[in-house]
Amino acid sequence: MKIFIFLLLLGIHSAAAVIHSLKYFITGSSQIQNLPELVIVGVVDEVQMFHYDSNTMKAEPKQDWMEKITDPEHWERLTQISLGKQQTFKADIEILKQRFNQTEGLFILFNGLTAAKQQAVFTKHQWENNRAFINYMFNYFSQIFPDWLKMYVDYGRSSLMRTDLPSVSLLQKTSSSAVSCHATGFYPSRAEMFWRKDGEEIHEGVTKGEILPNNDGTFQMSVDLSAPEDWTKYECVFQLSGAKEDVVTRLEKTKIRTNEGSSPAGVGGVVVGVLVGIIIIIIIIIIITVGVMWWRRLNKGEKTH
């Protein structure tokens, strides 16, 4: 099997008070069954809004607010650009195969000017000396991309600009384990979470988790605090991009949800249930035994008469 992968990441940020980003991920493959030769995914503020692949050969919206862009020229332009990438991809793969003297294997190409491999130095110099290419890319990053980003944000403002604050819980497995401050249900994913002591952010004994997606499109994250000393001095702070206020949760033992003590209680419940079941079985056996003995006595009396 011959596999070649081409990955391109383009991004730009708006100059507004709230930072927005526009990125395009281009992934190509060669001679892999049931996999499009080229896939392009467009992302605004980490939300996929555009898709193209070499099977459909058409730029398509992935969000309801993207479907509101009814300008046929915009979609035609995206399609033509994607088709152009599809054609250049084939040429790029052939060049890579020749440069690395390989007919099969895995290739990853990042669109940048830093050559990680000696074979990429020639391409780096070509890009640097190609004034037309540099001007073309400069025009994209300075003119076209900012205009597109502004248009996408305008159309998707109600979705992209919404801010949903999380519900925050303090969790602890046992009294000796770390205290976890868990936030869930927030949007967007641009958020920070940390512990403070006496009003100052601390890092020692703090472990920050990754931001993870929920099934409903919101996000969750946790930050753990090990061995807090004076509990009254600590507080968990959640900051959401675009929100006016932080969510501050003071560390109080009465607010902590813990599993400690639940296991013995559960075992006790099981034991009580088993004992009740045994007692019921014993009662049933006694009733049956007494009944059988009573029936035999009656039957013996009838035979005597």
Rank of each mutant, 00 (worst) to 15 (best):
N101G: 07
M1G: 13
D71R: 01
S158F: 07
T258L: 03
T88L: 12
L38E: 06
I108E: 07
I26C: 11
E252M: 09
G273E: 03
L160F: 12
D92F: 11
A227P: 00
N299K: 13
V206Y: 04
A183C: 13
G28N: 10
V223M: 08
N34T: 03
V121K: 13
F50T: 01
N129L: 10
S14H: 07
I285T: 01
V272E: 10
Y187G: 03
S167F: 11
M57H: 04
R157H: 12
F6C: 05
T249S: 08
L170T: 06
E76N: 15
I282T: 00
G266S: 11
V43Q: 05
L113W: 09
I281L: 14
I134M: 12
V290I: 14
I93K: 04
A59Y: 12
V153Q: 01
E67C: 07
P166D: 07
P228Q: 03
Q119W: 03
I211F: 10
G261H: 06
A183E: 08
A116F: 12
M151N: 05
D45V: 06
G205P: 02
S177P: 01
K97C: 10
L83E: 14
M293E: 08
I26M: 07
H203R: 05
N111A: 11
L96S: 10
E302K: 10
K68D: 13
C181M: 13
A17P: 05
A120I: 06
W127Y: 12
V274H: 10
N130R: 01
T79N: 13
G42R: 04
E200P: 00
V292W: 07
I288L: 14
K244A: 14
K255G: 08
S142G: 01
L251K: 00
D53Y: 07
P61S: 02
Y136S: 10
Q87I: 04
F110V: 00
K197T: 11
T258Q: 05
